[in-house]
């Protein structure tokens, strides 16, 4: 008696299961796979693209007399990359901006320095380090060092917004989108993507322009303050400047090996 009731319940249960599950199987059966296997897609770079083994920048601070000489660099960069102008200072997004010598080089700072240096605004940006700590700490490889040309790139699609890279960067070169930046972009460059809230962003050495054969936006408008070139090519413009002038880099004692050099 008891056993037959149990069997009845089992059978009824299995039957009900089938009735409930059938539409699910039908739906998935209708969707099917992704068609026949695709041949591997072919990708290539443009022939006009500028290439290097490791891109680097030299900042000739002797040519900077006042904020007015460097402001166009920042404007050009932030305009071309849709960098928002956030209302609160603590949410600021900065790809390239000015710092005093004291803040750009806190480890080299002395109370007594030349008036000229004390007055000079130093353009600072991502150093595209040869040994970048931000890349080391990223838990998703959303930020990585591009093997082809040494640029430290951000993959905004992959970034989970943990901000480990902000903690790891000793230069404050990374910014986080605390709000949706969309509402704070003054003049949208329709050719370049924006970012979404919750991801980290920073200078990309204008890799999108290099791909089309154009030098970075800040370099273009810098009137010779900035020079851009291949660090590994001894005949490049940057190597020539480094060979002929005394240059410093930010916080070299940390072993990050910045690729932005300053002539002072």
């Amino acid at each position: 008696m008891k056993s037959s009731r149990r069997n009845f319940l089992k059978i009824a249960g299995i039957a009900a299961l089938g009735v409930g599950a059938k539409p699910v199987f039908d739906t998935f059966a209708a969707v099917g796979g992704h068609g026949p296997t695709e041949p591997a897609p072919i990708f290539k770079s443009s022939e006009e693209a500028l290439t290097a083994n490791h891109w680097a920048m030299v900042v000739d601070t002797r040519k900077i007399r006042s904020e007015r000489d460097v402001a166009p660099l920042f404007r050009a960069c932030h305009q071309v990359h849709n960098v928002p102008d956030m209302p609160l200072k603590r949410h600021e997004i900065k790809w390239i901006w000015a710092e005093s010598f004291h803040h750009a080089f806190p480890d080299l700072h002395s109370e007594l320095i030349s008036d000229k240096i004390a007055r000079t605004p130093f353009p600072v940006l991502c150093n595209h380090c040869e040994n970048p700590p931000c890349v080391r700490v990223c838990p998703t490889k959303a930020t990585f060092k591009r093997e082809s040309d040494g640029i430290v790139v951000m993959d905004y699609h992959r970034c989970i917004g943990c901000r480990f890279c902000l903690a790891a960067c000793p230069y404050g070169a990374r910014s986080f989108n605390f709000f949706n930046p969309d509402d704070y972009i003054k003049e949208v460059n329709l050719k370049f993507a924006k970012r979404t809230k919750g991801v980290v962003e920073k200078c990309n050495f204008c890799e999108e322009r290099l791909a089309e054969g154009i030098i970075p936006a800040c370099v273009e408008v810098s009137n010779g303050i900035l020079t851009f070139g291949d660090l590994r090519d001894s005949r490049s413009s940057v190597r020539k400047l480094i060979a002929e002038n005394f240059t410093i880099r930010r916080k070299v004692h940390l072993g990050t090996s910045p690729a932005v050099y300053y002539i002072v």
Binding site: H34, G35, P39, P41, F43, S45, V153, D155, E207, A211
Partner: peptide, 29 residues
């Protein structure tokens, strides 16, 4: 037909090719 069914897959590989490998040109069949 391919675009209707597979545009998201195409965009996904495009994205990785551009962002991660720095290759920006796609050559179709």
């Amino acid at each position: 037909e391919y675009m209707t069914l597979e545009h998201m897959q195409l965009l996904d590989v495009w994205r990785d090719a551009v962002v991660r490998d720095g290759k920006r040109i796609y050559v179709n069949p």
